[in-house]
Design a protein around this nucleic acid. Structure first.
Lengths: 144, 144
DNA sequence: CTCAGTGCAAAGGATTTGCATGCCG
DNA sequence: CGGCATGCAAATCCTTTGCACTGAG
């Protein structure tokens, strides 16, 4: 199933007329190996890769819907693999103190309710929802 | 009830050993008059106020839990009055194209379910949730 | 050969801070 | 009077961009 991931990534890049270069594969592997969204600095620590190349490749991967940008309370962008590539729908615990982000999941029943709510929003407003973002903001174990 | 708002703000600032200055009151009034979170630029357009003073006062107001910072997809910070000051619990529609943010509400039943989920998270993880953030990300009427 | 990807360094832009001044308490 | 708020301008810092080089097809 690991190769499934990479062939999925390659497919999405191809659809965007983009190549699956070694740097891009390295980024995907870094994100694959973690359980939470990573910042630029965290990703740079893992492998030798120019900061600008990282930013540029993340932009390409984001446009191809391979990675997803996660926004926290600090000024640092964080990235994770797209949920529909990893079959791992989850939500985020965001620390209001330090900005750390961790993953968590909720019950299928709650997810179903959320999906229903999204459908209703589309019917009432002119807004067409693509996905939902349920984050819990609070204080993490370290800062607490 | 308008005065209730200002006395509530004054109280929270006092608790933080901060004054309720004219600039701070102006900021609260600007936010009170709108139905969606505002960016720095939008707030500057309303009244004559130095950019640095706006940033500094927003930091003070945020620390006193008078205003709340809303994060969108573009790089612009947005601010709204704290929900527990206005008795107006709502969520956000975030446009993935232009970053515009609008407010919306969901059913009380869904809210109750969300609160229950939050309680469960605290029991399982070391994370102590303060509030939840349910955003729908999609394409707004203008960009659609 | 061509053209996208890469790395380095410089630029960009939202946000923050230093400092002198003014005003509230 | 003392200290905080204010405004202006300069500095910060994450992020983006210009440019020359390299490598894959």
């Amino acid at each position: 199933m690991i190769e499934d991931l990479h062939s999925g990534v390659a497919g999405r890049l191809r659809a965007d007329a983009q190549r699956y270069t070694p740097n891009r594969r390295a980024i995907v592997e870094i994100l694959e190996a973690t359980e939470r969204p990573l910042t630029i600095v965290e990703m740079l620590g893992s492998r030798r890769l120019a900061q600008s190349s990282l930013y540029r490749n993340l932009a390409v991967l984001e446009a191809a819907k391979v990675v997803h940008r996660v926004t926290s309370t600090d000024g640092f962008a964080r990235f994770e693999l797209a949920e529909d590539l990893t079959d791992d729908h989850h939500h985020h615990l965001i620390c209001a103190r330090c900005g750390a982000v961790a993953d968590f999941t909720v019950s299928p029943a709650l997810e179903r309710t959320l999906e229903e709510a999204m459908g209703r929003v589309e019917a009432v407003t002119g807004f067409r929802p693509e996905h939902h973002r349920l984050d819990l903001v609070g204080v993490c174990a370290t800062c607490g």
